[in-house]
């Protein structure tokens, strides 16, 4: 019941927990990251994925098992790099379409020195951060209101259910029509895509607060407002953060799409343009950049998340 926006019987229950990928959003992220229960400490796929970086950065203790873990994790990456380098050279794959890694890195370095990379990177970052920040600023309050006030939920649910099942990609032409080809349409597009995981997780975070805690707070005579401030909100923070982290991934993934459809700058444009003009190493350089950006962004969000929920971590 907490999964859907409200118990609207007319809408087919998708039965998806918080953090669901809105239908049609093109992503390759770990979808369906489970909404973590207030006290549970289930490491998500994302946590495990990022663990590598924490180990690599030496954040954790440097015990021997950690070192062997580090080796195991880097091994796969090294293998990938090795294959990427050798297979094209051996002629197993077509060098033209898949140049060896070293050539790609050289192209990347040239782009960096030439200043283009920074320019495109900056354009993309500003767009995705704007959309992402906008989504956080507007959607969390909306989600809180929907989760907390039944009438708001009843009123908005049908509309939200409808939009939730409308792909962001399908709406991009509409955004372009209304906001033009410039920055606003891209930011709105990212904002739209980012809003859903945040909204759904916020709602579910508010609705799934341990009833005993609410009861306990009520027994101490807390007013509804104080109850919300002192119990519901802190209890919902971890779940909200799961949504924020998913949104962070979406902000980059969806922006890339928008930049490929129509833009004069940005990493998506770089990749697309490089492909059109057959600068294949540049294309791969763009792809690597976007992957690293995504990883770093997620790493940042995970770090912030940990800050906010120290009370959850066992170990």
């Amino acid at each position: 019941m907490a999964d859907t926006l409200a118990a609207v019987p007319a809408v087919p229950a998708t039965g998806t927990p918080a953090g669901t990928v809105p239908a049609g959003t093109a992503t390759g992220t770990p979808a369906g990251t489970p909404a973590v229960s207030p006290r549970g400490d289930v490491p998500t796929a994302d946590d495990r994925a990022t663990n590598f970086f924490r180990v690599a950065a030496g954040v954790r203790s440097s015990a021997l098992p950690r070192l062997s873990l580090l080796l195991r994790r880097t091994a796969a990456l090294a293998l990938l790099a090795g294959l990427w380098e050798t297979l094209p050279r051996l002629g197993v794959v077509d060098r033209v379409f898949a140049p060896p890694l070293s050539e790609v890195l050289v192209a990347w370095y040239d782009l960096l020195v030439g200043g283009q990379l920074v320019e495109h990177f900056q354009a993309s970052l500003i767009r995705s951060l704007s959309g992402f920040a906008l989504a956080i600023a507007l959607t969390i309050p909306l989600g809180l209101a929907i989760g907390w006030y039944r009438p708001v939920a009843d009123f908005l649910s049908p509309v939200l259910e409808l939009f939730r099942n409308t792909s962001a990609v399908a709406l991009l032409p509409v955004f372009i029509l209304i906001f033009g080809l410039g920055e606003p349409s891209k930011i709105i597009f990212v904002f739209y895509a980012c809003s859903w995981p945040i909204l759904l997780n916020t709602i579910s975070g508010v609705r799934t607060v341990e009833p005993l805690l609410v009861k306990s707070a009520r027994s101490m005579g807390l007013s509804p407002f104080r109850l919300f401030q002192k119990v519901i909100l802190p209890a919902a923070v971890p779940t909200i953060f799961t949504g924020v982290r998913l949104a962070g991934a979406y902000s980059i993934l969806t922006l890339l799409f928008a930049e490929m459809v129509g833009a004069k700058a940005g990493l998506g444009y770089l990749i697309q343009d490089a492909q059109f003009s057959f600068r294949i190493p540049d294309m791969y350089a763009g792809i690597i950049t976007i992957s690293v950006l995504g990883l770093l962004f997620n790493l940042l969000l995970v770090t912030v998340e940990r800050r906010f929920s120290t009370w959850r971590t066992t170990s």
Binding site: P38, R39, L213, S219, M220, P234, A235, V237, W311, R312
Partner: peptide, 14 residues
């Protein structure tokens, strides 16, 4: 009136 519940109803974030 103060209540002590059977399940430790402590606020985990405090």
């Amino acid at each position: 009136r103060g209540i002590v519940f059977q399940q430790y109803a402590l606020f985990p974030w405090r």
